[in-house]
């Protein structure tokens, strides 16, 4: 039964192979491996930080944009309101002006019409006086009516 037999050769083989393996791993594999791990850790940490920073910046920009948009919106609203009130005022003023003008025109027209009527009346009176004088001349018969009488007649007609 060679389950527990001593085999010094195998012991030495184990030591040698373990030693060689350790030497190779320690000398050639471990430095680059640990360096890679460290570098990768650093890179990943850095990129995560960068990503967080970028996200923060993005949020800031977004907030800024939102604020700007809000401001612009309110400004536009204000402007619109202003414009509307301005327009209304203008309309009112225009309307008033137009009304006033129309009234003026009306008054003027009325005045003009009255003046015309007066003029017409005066002319008619004159004509009537003349006509009366002429007619009475004819009735009286070629009696020349003096200018004084004529004037008197005119006054009479006016009082009529």
């Amino acid at each position: 039964m060679d389950l527990f037999t001593l085999d010094p050769g195998l012991v030495i083989w184990t030591w040698i192979s373990f030693g060689i393996l350790f030497f190779i791993l320690w000398k050639f594999v471990f430095p680059p491996l640990m360096e890679n791990l460290k570098n990768r850790e650093k890179t990943i940490a850095k990129s995560i930080d960068d990503a967080a920073a970028i996200e923060r910046r993005l949020e800031e920009i977004e907030a800024e944009r939102g604020e700007l948009l809000k401001k612009t919106n309110s400004e536009a609203d204000e402007m619109l309101l202003q414009t509307r009130s301005d327009a209304e005022e203008l309309k009112k003023r225009l309307l008033e002006k137009a009304e006033k003008e129309a009234e003026e025109v009306l008054v003027q027209a009325r005045r003009k019409a009255e003046a015309e009527r007066e003029a017409l009346l005066r002319a008619l009176q004159d004509d009537l006086a003349d006509f009366v004088c002429d007619a009475s001349e004819k009735v009286i018969g070629s009696v020349f009516i003096t200018e004084k009488e004529r004037e008197f007649t005119r006054e009479l007609v006016k009082e009529l």
């Binding site: 192979s17 060689i20 393996l21 190779i24 594999v29 680059p32 360096e35 890679n36 570098n39 890179t43």
Partner: peptide
């Protein structure tokens, strides 16, 4: 020994990010 050293030296490269 051959397996471990083989795989490790073949697949681990410096600056492999």
């Amino acid at each position: 020994v051959l397996l471990i050293t083989g795989f490790y030296s073949a697949w681990i490269k410096r600056g492999d990010l």
